[in-house]
Write a protein that binds this DNA or RNA. Structure first.
Length: 417
RNA sequence: GUGGGUGUAGCUCAAUAGGUUAGAGCACUGGGUUGUGGCCCCAGAGGUCGUCGGUUCAAGUCCGAUCACUCACCCCA
């Protein structure tokens, strides 16, 4: 019989790996909650329309990467390809703007995109998603990027750079788009086929084309940053001022464009050069029109997402892993001692001590080997001899010393080690 | 969706120009005198050589197909 494999691009996270995830998750919660963010959990499945309207009909995500299907009653649903649209939907649906003028929310969980997997890119991947609603002030933009930096520092990640840009508002971006299209048209002949297509569909995207002759053309192309409107320009200036105030290093990257339609003004990405082709560990930006696009009130928002597998891949390259092991091992010989050891194990656990034992009646030598593999600091040895005397031998694995301890004192004595 | 690379034990890899019972290291199990770990020594278990088909007296090895994994393109976290 053929064994069943996991779905392509969807991974099991095994013991030994899962410790990294726990570390990232707990650190994320600590930092985010310290900045006033509260967790929200939304369904993994949403109406398809939420994403086609929210992310943009012509984006790659919506066009070709979504897990979309018709359910038994003919309703079109999709596994979420990102979290922002869902969080905004929940925000609108539950009228969260009525509670406070500002809402700071975060969500952890799996996202789904049907792409060809490669290093740092999977069909089920996980994000730490952060969103703040109701405030358009640049102070919040800067605080968010500062918080991202604090988180990455706390988790111990090094070698990443924060890129920032302003994408302007729908109005000035539209004007720029027309100008850029005009420019590209005059250089049409030199552009690669992809860029010729992008000229119509999404001219801004030509900026991250990797073909050399396209880059050459784009060097002289009008930059969005140079032509954003006055209010967008001052917003960006103030973001930068606050970044300096918070002593958070950044790099202005006028070529950065983001793949989702809803971004406005501030956009940012955390970039690494240690992940092969996947260079973005996290990214986000402001999305002032999104809530309204999704049928809600006209409320500004800003947010970002961190790719957990990418972050963990980097951490694993940079840090030693810490394995989780029991602290005490019980080695017992003979039926009487084994039966007692079984109970004793539960008592030690009840006292809060991580305890493991041998369940198979193996030789003492074998049990000691097992204890050593676990890396426990102490082993309790229990045999006929000890049972007769009403004691257990406590062996210190590091020092090799051994002492006898009365059985009735055990949980207490172990706690004081 | 497109292109490249790789599929042999749980893991990392060997296997002469096709030729008998496919090997090693690590990991695993047991043992090295009565009930004591690490180091060392001995022994053991573990593989339909991804799958299907073809060439051949003979295929892990050659050919084809297929699947899986992987890297890259596209795009993104």
């Amino acid at each position: 019989m053929e064994s069943i494999q996991a779905v392509k691009g969807m991974n099991d996270i095994l013991p030994g790996q899962v410790e990294w995830w726990q570390k990232v998750e707990t650190t994320a919660r600590e930092v985010l909650e310290n900045f006033g963010y509260r967790e929200i959990r939304t369904p993994v499945l949403e109406k398809l329309e939420l994403f086609s309207r929210g992310i943009g009909e012509s984006t790659d995500i919506v066009e070709k990467e979504m897990y979309a299907f018709e359910d038994r009653r003919g309703e079109w649903l999709a596994l979420r390809p990102e979290a922002t649209a869902s969080v905004v939907r929940a925000y609108i649906q539950h009228n969260l703007q009525a509670d406070f003028t500002m809402q700071k929310l975060y969500a952890l969980g799996p996202m789904f995109r049907r792409e060809r997997p490669q290093k740092g890119r999977y069909r089920q991947f996980h994000q730490i998603d952060v969103e703040a609603f109701g405030v358009d002030d640049p102070m919040l933009d800067a605080e968010m990027m500062y918080m991202l930096r604090v988180f990455l520092e706390r988790i111990g990640l090094s070698g990443v750079v924060l890129h920032i840009n302003s994408l302007g508002c729908p109005q000035c971006r539209q004007e720029h788009k027309v100008r850029l299209q005009g420019y590209l048209e005059t250089h049409q002949e030199t552009l690669c086929p992809d860029c010729r297509k992008r000229r119509h569909t999404n001219p801004l995207r030509t900026f991250d084309c990797k073909v050399e002759r396209c880059q050459k053309v784009l060097e002289k192309a009008p930059h969005l940053l140079g032509s954003i409107c006055e209010p967008c320009g001052t917003h960006f200036e103030r973001v930068k001022d606050h970044m300096e105030q918070l002593r958070t290093p950044y790099l202005i990257n006028p070529r950065m464009v983001r793949g989702l339609d809803y971004y406005t003004r501030t956009a940012f990405e955390v970039i690494t050069d240690q992940l092969g082709a996947q260079n973005a560990v996290g990214g986000g930006g402001r999305y002032n029109g999104l809530a309204q696009d999704l049928g809600g009130p006209d409320i500004p928002g800003i947010g970002f997402a961190i790719g957990m597998e990418r972050l963990i891949l980097l951490l694993q390259q940079q840090q030693e892993e810490a394995r989780r092991m029991p602290k005490i091992f019980l080695a017992a010989m003979g039926e009487r001692a084994r039966t007692h050891a079984f109970l004793l194990t539960q008592e030690l656990r009840a006292a809060g001590l991580e305890t493991e034992m041998d369940y198979e009646g193996k030789s003492l030598k074998s049990q000691m080997r097992r204890a050593d593999k676990y890396g426990v600091s102490h082993v309790l040895i229990l045999g006929e001899e000890e049972m007769d005397k009403g004691v257990a031998k406590l062996r210190n694995m590091a020092g090799k010393s051994q002492q006898e301890i009365p059985l009735e004192d055990l949980p207490a004595a172990m706690k004081n080690l």
